[in-house]
Computed example of a mutant assay.
Amino acid sequence: MAEITAASVKELRERTGAGMMDCKKALGETQGEMEAAIDWLRTKGLAAAAKKAGRTAAEGLVGVAVAGNRGAVVEVNSETDFVAKNEQFQEFVRTVAELALTGSGNVEGLLASAWPAGGGTVEEKLTSNIATIGENQSLRRSAVLQVNDGVVVSYVHNAAATGLGKIGVLVALESNGDKAALETLGKQLAMHIAAANPQALRGEDLDPTLIERERSIATEKANESGKPADIVSKMVDGAMAKFRKENALLSQLFVMDNKTKIEDVVKAEAKNAGAPIELTAYVRFQLGEGIEKQETDFAAEVAAAAGKAA
């Protein structure tokens, strides 16, 4: 009988999507044999047949591309970080980012775009890659920024290759000033955005759901102080003002000096550019953000389950 370990339970869970207790029971019923355990779960209706398209793709690459007054950023996911180092995969992400420059940021439209050199569509190329590389992959999202007069600057943090990495940023600066000065400012702002991860351009643009959640937390904390209701209200208002300031790009403190607000950095640079500058938009894609990818201490989880079962 093969030993039933936390690692084997984890593997079975990842391969079948079944619950931890069901996986532990399946291994027990099959003397720890992995393939037999998979079949046992399937016979009980607790797991589907393993399919590449059903596995979570939370690794991969973010790709950026800029041409003229437009910039694009895309996220293409894979199952493992190993695939992100694959030249075929990298070339796919790079090409998709370039194709996105002509679109609107709509993923469906991008998937339907023609692949260069008569290779069908982007979606067909992606399907071919899944078959040849052997892992599920998906074009998850895309965004495009454009200015009338100015620059769109891109930045990739910890680049795996030119224009490819785990965090990609676009910054749109509207101005008829010196383009070299705008490019320098844009790169500095993009690096700040990569590090500081603002949630919106301005405080009033923050997601209402996020604001409501933070207000609820602030209220609960303030109520624990035992102070009168009017003081609690002021405490909550103060906490929310601080939250907006720290999470809106224009009011964040520049990471390079930690004392100047971003909006003041932009105003100051207008002198070097020789014209007013408006930071009109930004996009920040971080690989895998928002994808449910549970990290669990399986040893502790299995031990706890064993205790309950005993």
Rank of each mutant, 00 (worst) to 15 (best):
A7I: 12
L12M: 06
R13I: 00
R13G: 00
R13Y: 01
R15E: 01
R15Q: 14
G17S: 06
G17K: 07
G17V: 00
A18H: 12
A18D: 10
G19Q: 05
C23E: 11
E29G: 01
E29T: 02
E29S: 15
T30P: 04
Q31V: 02
G32I: 13
M34W: 06
E35S: 14
A36V: 01
A36D: 08
A37I: 10
I38T: 13
D39T: 08
W40T: 14
L41C: 10
L41E: 03
L41M: 10
R42I: 03
T43W: 01
T43L: 10
K44L: 14
A48G: 03
A48V: 12
A48T: 11
K51Y: 04
K51N: 13
A53G: 14
A53R: 13
G54V: 12
E59N: 15
G60R: 08
L61S: 09
G68Q: 09
R70N: 11
V73C: 11
E75W: 14
E75C: 13
F82Y: 09
K85E: 06
N86M: 04
Q88C: 03
Q90S: 12
F92R: 14
V93G: 07
R94V: 11
R94A: 15
T95Q: 06
T95H: 14
E98T: 07
T102M: 11
S104D: 15
G105P: 09
G105Y: 01
G105M: 11
G105Q: 04
G105I: 07
L111K: 13
A112Y: 01
A114E: 13
W115P: 03
P116W: 03
P116R: 06
G119V: 00
G120L: 09
E123L: 11
K125T: 15
K125A: 11
S128D: 15
N129G: 00
I130P: 01
G134A: 10
N136M: 03
N136Q: 09
Q137K: 14
Q137Y: 03
Q137S: 02
S138Y: 00
